[in-house]
Design a protein around this nucleic acid. Structure first.
Length: 291
DNA sequence: AAGCTTTGCAACCGCAACGCT
DNA sequence: GAGCGTTGCGGTTGCAAAGCT
């Protein structure tokens, strides 16, 4: 590690001579043909050159993994898949790669998009907003988003007990993801994950009580990190992805109306509803609220 | 029919971990 | 152990299509 600090990170490719944007059928064919013949060669950076593509290696990798790879499933998600995604999301957050690993043929990108555009709304559609007056749409707000998606109070991120809405309301013990007591691993079955989450579901909504880390700093600090457990699985001190589930009441993707620290009033009673909904949807084996 | 808004998804970006030297 | 290149991941963006007025 350690190139990050310098700010002098070399670009992964010559951006000037690299094509961006949607892939053409010809490019797809070229990439597929090359990989079918030679494999990836363990080096995506040099692959486009060898294959005769004017693309960044990263772009090739992404295209292959998300689209060209054999056995990729496209199209509608089944109810079972919906439920599994929901269960896993409430267990481990936006760990899309891990969630994707439980859904054969689905890519993390697919699942992420599906969650952000459909599943989240589907889930939230089950909730009735408390205060219709707050339900006025803001730019880019989906019509069926309840207004009470909390945007958290305008407190300093360092104040214990609050978070800005840009950061996870959740902190997880560093050993949670690879704790033997939780039984978590990428190889864990969804059932195991639910069990793990069950043991942890309380603190998920513990608000301020759960937000301090052991060194006394606040877990509002977004911790991005990937440790790996014995299974080669990302694990560790995680910023679970419920943040995206919670914060953006008026955009799928970004809080376009309010700046950092600005907020609408919070409807805390609605938090209880969400809490109940998620714990119900997660813990209850009869996940039938999608039906 | 035209213009505007919203939605869905492919692709990009930046960061952090990995792994080799 | 440090440095550096590569990989993998999650968040974000851009744009075409669909829907609405």
């Amino acid at each position: 590690m350690g190139t990050m600090e310098s700010g002098l990170r070399a670009p992964c490719c010559d951006k000037a001579n690299v094509k961006k944007g949607p892939w053409s059928p010809e490019e797809d064919a070229t990439l597929k043909e090359y990989i079918d013949k030679h494999g990836t060669g363990g080096n995506w950076i040099s692959l486009p050159q060898k294959a005769g593509l004017k693309r960044c290696g990263k772009s090739c990798r992404l295209r292959w993994l998300n689209y060209l790879r054999p056995n990729i499933k496209h199209g509608e998600f089944s109810d079972d898949e919906d439920k599994l995604i929901c269960t896993l999301f409430t267990s481990i957050g936006s760990r899309w790669s891990i969630i994707a690993a439980q859904l054969p043929g689905r890519t993390d990108n697919d699942i992420k998009n599906y969650w952000n555009t459909k599943l989240k709304k589907k889930l939230m559609g089950k909730l009735v907003p408390h205060h219709p007056s707050q339900n006025q749409r803001k730019p880019h707000q989906s019509p069926n988003y309840p207004s009470f998606f909390p945007v958290f109070p305008p407190q300093s991120p360092t104040q214990t007990g609050y978070f800005t809405g840009y950061e996870s309301p959740i902190s997880v013990p560093p050993n949670f993801m690879h704790s033997s007591s939780t039984g978590f691993s990428t190889n864990a079955t969804p059932t195991a994950l639910v069990q793990a989450q069950e043991s942890y579901v309380g603190p998920l909504f513990g608000g301020g009580e759960a937000s301090s880390s052991s060194d006394g700093s606040c877990s509002n600090q977004v911790i991005r990190g990937r440790e790996h457990d014995n299974y080669g699985v990302p694990s560790g001190n995680e910023n679970l992805g419920l943040q995206s589930f919670f914060f953006d009441g008026y955009s799928d993707q970004k809080p376009s109306g309010l700046g950092y620290g600005e907020s609408d009033p919070v409807d805390y009673s609605s938090l209880e509803e969400i809490k109940e909904l998620i714990s119900t949807s997660t813990v209850c084996s009869n996940l039938n609220f999608f039906c």
